[in-house]
Simulated scan of single mutants.
Amino acid sequence: MTKSVQLLEAAGAMLRDALNRRDWEAIGVLDQQCRQAIDEAMDEVPVDEALLRTRMEDLLALYRELVECCRNEQQRIAGELLQLNQAKQGAKVYQLFG
């Protein structure tokens, strides 16, 4: 296994762990590491092309999962903001008539 394939594997494992913990800061840092590992893998002549393809496909699936998780988190936060704004409006009405 080449160094670039090992880097892809390690970066993917750390990214998955950060995603499971919902550690968005770590995900940002690890995203950069994954991009760098991909660049290195693309520049290197693959010794085992099938293994490299498998690691890239695994990483692609992980990124799809990450995007879906981000969408869900965005929707959750939007719902919380909506509830907060509604509560704020209710408090203003209460103060006005209270």
Rank of each mutant, 00 (worst) to 15 (best):
L62T: 02
E49L: 09
V5L: 04
E44I: 05
M42V: 15
A13H: 00
V5N: 07
V67Y: 04
Q75G: 11
Q6F: 03
E9M: 00
G90V: 01
Q95D: 13
L82N: 02
A13D: 03
Q95H: 11
V29I: 13
G98I: 07
M1W: 03
G79H: 04
A18L: 06
R71D: 11
L62D: 04
G98F: 10
N72Q: 13
I27A: 10
L51P: 00
L30R: 05
R71I: 08
D31E: 12
L59V: 00
Q33G: 00
A41H: 11
A78S: 11
E49G: 05
A18Y: 06
E40T: 10
A26T: 09
L19Y: 03
Q95S: 11
L66I: 02
L96W: 12
Q32I: 13
Y63A: 04
M14A: 13
L52N: 03
Q33F: 03
K3W: 02
G98N: 14
F97C: 04
I27W: 07
L81H: 09
C69M: 12
T54A: 09
A37L: 06
N72W: 09
D31S: 14
P46R: 08
D48I: 05
L81P: 00
L52R: 15
D58Y: 03
M56H: 01
I77G: 02
R16P: 00
E73Q: 14
Q95M: 09
E80N: 06
F97S: 13
L59T: 03
M42H: 15
E25C: 02
D17Q: 15
A13L: 03
L7M: 12
R64H: 06
A10T: 14
Y63R: 09
G79A: 03
D23L: 11
R16L: 12
A13K: 07
V67Q: 07
Q95P: 00
I38D: 09
Q32G: 15
L84A: 12
G90H: 08
